[in-house]
Simulated scan of single mutants.
Amino acid sequence: MEGFEIVIPKDNVHNFIVSSLEAVGLTPARGSLVADILVSADYRGIYSHGVILLDKYMDEIRSGVVSVEDKEPTVIKESIGTALVDGNSLIGDIVVNKCAYVARYCMDIAIKKAKEAGIGFVTCRGANHFGMAGWYSTYAMEQGFVGVALCNTNSRMVPTRGTRTTLGTNPISIAALGNHGDSFILDMATTVVAAGKLKIMASKHSILPENMIVDVNGHESRKYEDFNGVFPVGGREETGGYKGFGLAMMIDILSGVLSGAEFGANCKGAGNLELTQLRNLMTYVNEYTSC
């Protein structure tokens, strides 16, 4: 029925996610943080990064793409303000007696280093989809820092003047505290739309908005069945799409090349229009006092 809604309490959704992940081998402790992040996304209205991801996560655990082994990410090398981490293909890990994504593990290291050195810069390879990037930058912000989280993904973007996908949706998020309970939080893909949002949109509308998807010839299309990739932020070249392409390249360098991991078209995912799969990520925090 059009317009029909069912409202489910947050705790019920959280418990459902935990029990579902437990059924495929993830411990309740680890599944709890996964649930925290997915429920947080839905609660903020970012439905492309909420419970819709659960089926993807379960499939990746079943197939062995994501490891549920009882092991930790590995810090390969570090300095007083930087670190390089290997996520060991984990969906998360135990940090401070709580389950955490590899991204949370990295952000905890970045925060610790920022407390000591004034800045923390951590790159990671061998990670998996980390949900909503804004969760991690906000996590740092709530501890008094400017938090930045970004990652490269499997290729979804057709660059300016191109016909093939060569970069991912490559999201970036920054969060900073303000006065009087205010804050600034940016969480965005460097494509005009995230893959998950496009999938939701296509399920509701037969014709998509303009300046969004690209067909196999590199031309714009408004039909979902023509999907070959998505435009960078800015859309076509005439409307500034090369700027989004440049931002995505920057993120690919920082999170893929710098960490010694896959990047560009070599950063492979599921090979269809499912939500993007994270391979590498970067977290950054800087000591901050609101003004």
Score class of each variant (00 low, 15 high):
Ser173Asp: 06
Arg156Cys: 10
Val192Glu: 15
Gly144Asp: 07
Ala194Asn: 02
Pro159Thr: 04
Ala149Gln: 09
Gly147Ala: 05
Thr165Arg: 14
Ile172Lys: 03
Thr153Gly: 02
Val158Gly: 00
Leu177Cys: 06
Ser155Ala: 14
Lys197Phe: 03
Leu167Ile: 14
Met188Trp: 14
Ala149Ile: 03
Thr169Asp: 01
Thr165Lys: 15
Met141Thr: 09
Gly162Ser: 04
Ala176Gly: 09
Thr191Cys: 02
Gly144Trp: 02
Ala195Cys: 07
Asn179Trp: 08
Asn179Phe: 11
Val146His: 06
Thr165His: 05
Thr191Asp: 02
Ser183Leu: 11
Val193Gly: 01
Met141Trp: 15
Gly147His: 07
Val158Leu: 05
Thr169Ser: 04
Ser183Thr: 13
Thr190Tyr: 00
Glu142Ala: 04
Asn152Cys: 11
Thr160Cys: 15
Thr153Met: 03
Ala176Asp: 10
Ala189Gln: 12
Arg164His: 06
Leu186Lys: 02
Pro171Asp: 00
Phe184Glu: 07
Glu142Gly: 06
Val192Ser: 06
Thr169His: 03
Ala149Tyr: 12
Asn170Ala: 02
Leu150Thr: 02
Ala176Trp: 08
Val148Phe: 14
Asn154Cys: 12
Pro159Leu: 03
Val158Ser: 02
Met141Glu: 13
Asn179Gly: 15
Arg156Asn: 08
Ala176Lys: 13
Gly168Pro: 13
Val146Asp: 08
Thr166Phe: 05
Leu167Ala: 13
Gly147Asp: 07
Val148Ala: 04
Thr166Cys: 06
Gly162Glu: 02
Asn170Thr: 01
Ala189Pro: 11
Val192Cys: 09
Val146Met: 12
Leu167Asp: 09
Thr160Gln: 13
Val148Ile: 13
Val148Pro: 08
Leu177Asp: 11
Arg161Trp: 13
Gly196Ala: 10
Val148Tyr: 10
Arg156Glu: 07
Arg156Gln: 09
Asp187Phe: 00
Met141Ile: 06
Leu167Tyr: 10
Thr190Met: 00
Asn170Leu: 00
Ser173Met: 13
Gly178Lys: 13
Phe145Leu: 05
Ala194Ile: 00
Gly196Arg: 07
Ile172His: 01
Leu150Glu: 00
Leu150Trp: 01
Asn154Ser: 14
Lys197Thr: 14
Val148Trp: 03
Thr166Ile: 13
Gly162Phe: 00
Pro171Gln: 02
Thr190Glu: 02
